[in-house]
């Protein structure tokens, strides 16, 4: 594992933990899109179905469990926590996220490495992850002031994507590792969405 990949994983982990701690410490999820969080939970569940079938390393397995549980904890807080759920901006968070799930699923059925359950789940999770931030971006643009922590959350997520692309470039040259084109393309789309956000974020 190279440094880019590790930094990518760490910024990804950090973004999720920052968000969870923010919600837990302030007992408020104001400015956080529950739809984006639900999409991420679906992404992790679909991608890490291989947890028990393909063992890569202890590091990978632990991280998979951490991502699934932390994203589930965020969704649980926003739906069930007696104080937190009252602070959810339901009227603002109107993005039709089911459309994204359906589109990602159809894409995964058409474009996959192999027409198997595992590969379709994997491709589905990659496509969905690329667009899962959209409800959050829409919510951020509606709110007048971007909350510091919510801004940081998106910042760390963006850093994660950037590091992963550097990781693929690095692996391409050092290991001759051909990262699958599905991840390349989706990764670029995803990073582009963040770049667009930061452009406006820093203008403000």
């Amino acid at each position: 594992m190279n440094a880019f990949r590790f930094l990518g994983d760490m910024t990804h982990l950090f973004s999720v933990l920052v968000l969870l701690l923010k919600i837990y410490a302030t007992k408020s999820c104001s400015g956080v899109s529950r739809k984006t969080q639900e999409l991420y939970m679906v992404v992790f569940l679909a991608r890490y179905m291989d947890l028990f079938t393909d063992y890569i390393s202890l590091y990978n397995s632990v991280m998979k469990v951490v991502f699934i549980t932390s994203s589930a904890a965020i969704v649980w807080c926003m739906r069930r926590h007696p104080q937190v759920r009252r602070t959810y901006d339901k009227e603002q968070d109107t993005f039709r996220h089911v459309v994204l799930v359906a589109a990602a699923f159809v894409l995964a059925l058409i474009f996959n490495e192999r027409f198997t359950f595992r590969e379709i789940c994997w491709a589905f999770s990659i496509y969905l992850e690329a667009v899962a931030i959209l409800p959050q971006l829409v919510l951020l643009q509606r709110g007048r002031n971007v909350d510091n922590l919510t801004g940081q959350y998106v910042f760390f997520l963006g850093a994660y994507r950037a590091f992963y692309i550097l990781n693929w470039i690095y692996r391409y040259f050092t290991e001759g590792h051909h990262s699958r084109w599905i991840s390349w393309l989706s990764g670029l789309v995803q990073t582009g969405l963040y770049a667009d956000f930061f452009y406006y974020y820093f203008l403000r």
């Binding site: 990949r5 994983d9 990804h12 991608r47 291989d50 393909d54 890569i56 990978n60 991280m63 998979k64 991502f67 490495e113 192999r114 198997t116 595992r118 590969e119 994997w122 992963y164 990781n167 991840s183």
Partner: peptide, 10 residues
């Protein structure tokens, strides 16, 4: 046929 590679990234 070759066995599909496992996904080694997160």
């Amino acid at each position: 046929t070759d066995k599909p590679k496992a996904h080694d990234e997160l």
